[in-house]
Design a protein around this nucleic acid. Structure first.
Lengths: 361, 361
DNA sequence: TATTAGCACTCGTAAGACAAGAGTGCCAAC
DNA sequence: GTTGGCACTCTTGTCTTACGAGTGCTAATA
């Protein structure tokens, strides 16, 4: 059964007001604000029904109403006004994105910081699990005891490592190892670098000094690092400006959880297409610590068939509309800059699709 | 004028107790705990004098005493027992240090995290300002439009960048640029890379495609990044477990300040020798936001004549003794692993020197 | 049948009163 | 110089009370 039009309007008004004020909202306030021409008594009747339907609740008998997770869910799915960013806002984001993505080195951290600044909530950035391979292998001879390993990965990131040895190596050996590794270690996944492969390479190189295993270890480490989903969380302290986290213990619990890292991943699994924004409200979160917080996540195309996630965490009383708009725009901007190709041109707002648990109760 | 032996004992007892309980300590408690054979009335007389001398204060008339910054300072300089870590503790630190320093890539973050975990206070890790130069320059040709810049710095860190061009370049040009840059850009500081030098290199390379400036920009960026002191702060949320930060606003203020980054640097300037631990108590801090917090900083030898700093931030009621011992040990361990040479052998506790504002009032 | 005005009722919050307790300062005695 | 004793101060917790916001319900109205 669907709610009457008026109930929806009232619910939306309650959520809007509560998001703004963080205080239970009463019938009178709604009668005045929402433009439906009826008295507070009528509103009261409707509110009572919305309570019994589970969309609202009262902290106590004589207080106003507060949305339940179910209420927020309906609000997010159907009622809320899809915000578009103002021109200034979107230009600002683009500018900052350009400034930051110069050095893509730890872009994930920068992106997280940016999201947090934009939304004023703690933000997280995640890289998805991928199957990166090595594209090419270079060894730079520095001196008899030193060389630099340079590895370029299939996702076009480049890693290096300075290796210092107690023994001397000649350039010929370096040369030989370089071509051997280029021959047998490129295009393979982490799992395919077996002890067997390493040993056969070692034999082929006629390497009695253990160089092969040093280099192979670096290859494994690099691939491992690139394959492991990484999480970066910033701006935890912004939680403290939210009234629902005035209790230091509560704030501490959530902040420690967030600082702990990427436990949020399971929730972010099985993410759909690009530029979709997913909203997880209160108990919809799997993690116990997030059961009365909300998470908004956007996904972007990080190039090379990998996806990145970017999201924020806040109280269930979150400004979903604004946050979704900003994250969506941010994700689209990232896709455009990092992604494969067929992204919409800059400046164009992409359609905002919000998805989530639609069971509705 | 120096305090009487008994006053010192009493002051130490007050500070010790207050550090533990975070509550004003009364005469009776001291009479019982500290082993001086006198009654609470005597203690009261002494306490009154310590108050008028400025070492203690009372929150209100009928409360116990609380140390002032001056009191903490005396405690830190003269009174507190220098803790040594237990064997398990030091072994634990060494183990963790070994585990983390494998990948020295963003060691600074790991070190900061470790310090925070060990002390249960927010921790910061800083790199000092240095004058890094470029040691060698390599350009790896990938394809006609792509090459990898690899730069090895005088502090033995290696940076790379993948450059993708809209135009084609041939290997000869790459070769030429590589030797030119190795000839004129190595051994020079950031400031010495002038537009003039870049232009003359460009001419010498006969480069009409702007490659020179791309490479020079990378050199500047790399040197700039290595020279700029970087700060890494972790564990801000641990503040929330301290009773003095139960006020969310106060906690928020300090946490935002900390998240903001390396403003603490000025305080850490002009740092003395290795393995010295510096304590800055309350108003001794220059930053307004730190005026009623304390900072403990240790310095370590990061190799190549550069120093690193590692420290923690907490309430003035900080367990200085334990923190100083841990940071000192940590710093020594880092010096040993990163530093030049003449570090003490592993497992040996280095002498703990604590220095700070010794004006004493 | 839906809406509205009116009114009694509930319940959280703020303010004031009060007792308890911890700790002090001071004085007189040792 | 030290100590026991005692009156005094000030915070903290609890209780009471008054207030007010907001409700639910009923009866009147369109």
């Amino acid at each position: 059964m669907s709610l009457s039009e008026r109930k929806k309007k009232i619910l939306a008004a309650v959520v809007d007001a509560y998001i703004q004020t963080a205080e239970p909202v009463g019938s009178k306030a709604i009668a005045e604000s929402a433009g439906l021409g009826c008295s507070s008594a009528t509103i009261r009747n409707e509110l009572a029904e919305l309570v019994s339907l589970g969309y609202l609740e009262q902290p106590h008998t004589s207080a106003g109403r507060v949305p339940t997770p179910k209420g927020y869910r309906l609000y997010v799915n159907e009622l809320m006004q899809r915000q578009k960013l103002s021109l200034e806002e979107s230009e600002d984001i683009n500018r900052r994105l350009n400034a930051r993505l110069q050095e893509l080195d730890d872009a994930i951290g920068d992106v997280s910081r940016l999201a947090s600044q934009l939304t004023d909530y703690p933000a997280l950035a995640l890289t998805s699990q991928t199957a990166v391979t090595i594209k090419r292998f270079d060894i730079i001879y520095v001196d008899a005891n030193t060389f630099i390993l340079v590895v370029m990965l299939s996702n076009n990131s480049v890693k290096n490592k300075l290796v210092h040895l107690p023994i001397s190596v000649d350039q010929t050996m370096i040369q030989r190892l370089s071509s051997l590794f280029n021959a047998s270690f490129t295009g393979v996944t982490e799992a395919e670098i077996t002890p067997l492969l390493i040993r056969s390479t070692e034999r082929a190189a006629d390497d009695s000094m253990g160089l092969t295993s040093v280099i192979a270890a670096f290859a494994l480490e690099t691939l491992g690092g690139a394959n492991t989903p990484a999480a970066f969380i910033t701006g935890e302290n912004r939680l403290l400006s939210q009234p629902e986290f005035r209790d230091p213990d509560k704030a501490h619990r959530l902040m420690s959880y967030l600082s702990g890292g990427g436990h949020i991943l399971p929730a972010a699994d099985s993410f759909g297409g690009t530029d979709e924004v997913r909203v997880l409200i209160g108990p919809e979160n799997v993690a116990e610590e997030l059961k009365d917080s909300s998470v908004v996540i956007a996904s972007y195309d990080a190039g090379d068939n990998t996806r990145g996630l970017i999201g924020v965490v806040g109280p269930t009383r979150m400004d979903y509309s604004a946050v979704a708009a900003k994250l969506s725009f941010l994700a689209a901007g990232l896709s455009r800059r990092l992604g494969g190709g067929e992204a919409p041109p800059e400046g164009m707002h992409n359609k905002l699709i919000i998805k989530g648990d639609t069971s509705d109760g």
